[in-house]
Design a protein around this nucleic acid. Structure first.
Lengths: 361, 361
DNA sequence: TTGAAAGCGATACCAA
DNA sequence: TTGGTATCGCTTTCAA
């Protein structure tokens, strides 16, 4: 085992020219618990702590043999830098914080994955905050996160309290709002238009020849925008009697089954159903199957999200695909170029979406 | 807008008894960029910075009216504490770091979700590290993470390099290794036995009456333990000619399809197939269907993981369910009680698993 | 109940 | 190329 603790007591070189407290200070913070510090390394190497710092950060400014000596001392002591101290001195934490509602649903997980991957190669770490679904905790979470002085922020959605927006502006760091493009961004935005998703879905179905329509929509902030826009687009197309059902968020398959049951009870036995999520759409398919309805013959279904399972298992499900990895990747690029001082090409990046049609099988 | 920057220049109360640098220091670190600090608040409130600190941390030790005054000053300045400085002084960061291979597959996402949820109410934040699949980056990542001095660590798996293990021990913080129970933990462990999964699966299938067996296994560290243990258990049961195929990790549906194709080419046309992941198992089912084989009549399939999609969409798939949320939750509990100084009841917690049988449809 | 001084462990700047 | 010194913003300890 490398001499960590012991190197503090039994010192070969009694240099003692520094500020290192020899006598136990009568007051002040308690001595650090046996952690190896820069000056421990410096002492062992017989140089000043500044030199060690330089070896770590800009070795090219230090004489090669000094570097060698210091490197050995670092290895021998098992020194682990304290980025807290470094960050305090430089006001740069090399930390990027991300706030997402949840990570377990795999919708945001992909974003976080590509974001983290990209940031990591640039030497940044990820501070993850989960705000819960109705973004209930965002306020407090934001405070806790800003307390750690991240160099940049990745947010989900564009609806924040006035208080939050003020704090965010005050932080004066690069901020990317994702997953939505509707509002004016605080700083930068990467996402797509939920409004256009709804509209395009309506037009897509209309062009396919459907004339009877229904919708099952979650009461989630963004989901609402989608299905309301769908309804609005249908109205513009001259379709007025759209049966529509709302469900709480987050959605699941059972809500979709229930939804179709209700629609059928209301007399909707054939036509196209827009669902604000794939989970709902999936439920509709299952219910249709259970009732012996053909898809898309009797009932056509369009979902949203293109979740993994949908791609493989629900060949009859048409859905709207968002490249979730692209969201994270583009957000990372935006953050990094900002952090590098480069001007960002576009403050608002639309990743767009695709309507993936699956009818065969 | 609250007077942040301006409050630094136009001061009403020229108390000036503190250490606040009035004259621009000729050297030393550059002045912080217009951030509101504790002493700014103190100045505005007409108290010392210690008093402000107390109001923030232990308000009960401060006179009620002082608290009031200080609180107002905090609100007016929009003060955001700097936890970097606080942590440096206390050597407690209120940060828990987690290292998982990937977050986008939803296997670890659930763990992280429940871990974060539980830690958050205790006032801890999550530092997330993604090590990639062959844990290639673990070494460097670990260093970067330890540099931030987390109060505790959540790790995936129990295989770490000697270097890593040394560093981990040296960190002297609570460490939970998850997802595996086979090795002796560095500190604590929450998981299940992959060995037993393989064995139990074999016995389960044997008891169901199957006598012809095959396996499709990924070359992932833990997956290997599962299917090797499956093979070993079969040998013990007197089954020798098990057709087995390996695939690289991470697995996907197509590998499962390929796998079954190869097995069939090798003459395996009926019996039970053990797959080291649900993705593989799912692929086997699809391929079986494509070839007109009945499941589980001709081919029975058992997977591993109980992924979300499997629960809903693959009724013929029998699988091994791990309560992933429990892993995160129990890890959080272990960490928190350790952090609170309480002794941990058990250093090794087995969350177990269930074999979920789905044959009907 | 409040305040002053001395760190925590690093980096920036200037001087040698 | 190297070292000394003064911070970064906060908390701890002791004294008032």
């Amino acid at each position: 085992m490398p001499p960590t603790q012991s190197s503090r007591t039994s010192r070969q070189r009694v240099k003692d020219g520094g500020t290192s407290a020899k006598s136990p200070s009568p007051r002040g913070a308690r001595p650090s618990r046996g952690t190896v510090t820069l000056s421990d390394v410096a002492e062992l190497a017989g140089v000043s702590s500044m030199t060690v710092s330089r070896v770590l950060n800009r070795p090219e400014t230090v004489a090669p043999e000094t570097v060698e000596t210091v490197r050995k001392a670092i290895a021998r002591t098992g020194y682990v830098p304290n980025l807290l101290a470094g960050a305090l001195a430089t006001t740069r934490t090399k930390l990027v914080a991300a706030i997402v509602p949840t990570i377990s649903g795999s919708i945001f997980a992909a974003c976080i994955q590509s974001l983290t991957d990209r940031l990591e190669v640039a030497g940044y770490q990820m501070l993850l905050g989960l705000s819960g679904y109705p973004a209930a905790r965002e306020e407090g979470l934001l405070n806790a996160i800003l307390s750690r002085r991240p160099d940049a922020l990745f947010l989900t959605g564009t609806t924040h309290s006035a208080q939050s927006r003020r704090r965010l502006r005050g932080a004066k760091i690069p901020i990317v709002e994702t997953w939505d493009l509707s509002a004016k961004p605080i700083d930068m935005a990467v996402g797509f238009s939920h409004q256009r998703v709804g509209r395009d879905a309506a037009q897509f179905l209309f062009k396919k020849g459907y004339r009877r329509f229904a919708a099952i929509g979650a009461e989630d902030e963004r989901a609402k925008i989608r299905w309301k826009s769908y309804l609005a687009a249908l109205t513009e197309l001259g379709v007025d009697d759209v049966a529509s059902i709302t469900t709480p968020a987050p959605t699941n398959l059972w809500m979709g089954r229930d939804g179709l049951s209700k629609l059928i009870a209301d007399g909707f036995t054939h036509g196209a159903v827009f669902c604000s999520s794939d989970a709902l759409a999936h439920g509709v398919l299952v219910e249709a199957q259970a009732r012996g309805l053909s898809v898309p013959g009797d009932i056509a279904v369009i979902g949203f999200g293109d979740l993994d399972f949908a791609a493989f298992t629900v060949p009859a499900l048409t859905t709207v695909r968002i490249d979730r990895f692209a969201v994270g990747r583009l957000a990372a690029e935006a953050i990094l170029s900002r952090l590098a001082g480069e001007p960002v090409a576009e403050k608002v990046i639309d990743v767009g979406f695709q309507i993936i049609e699956r009818e065969s099988t």
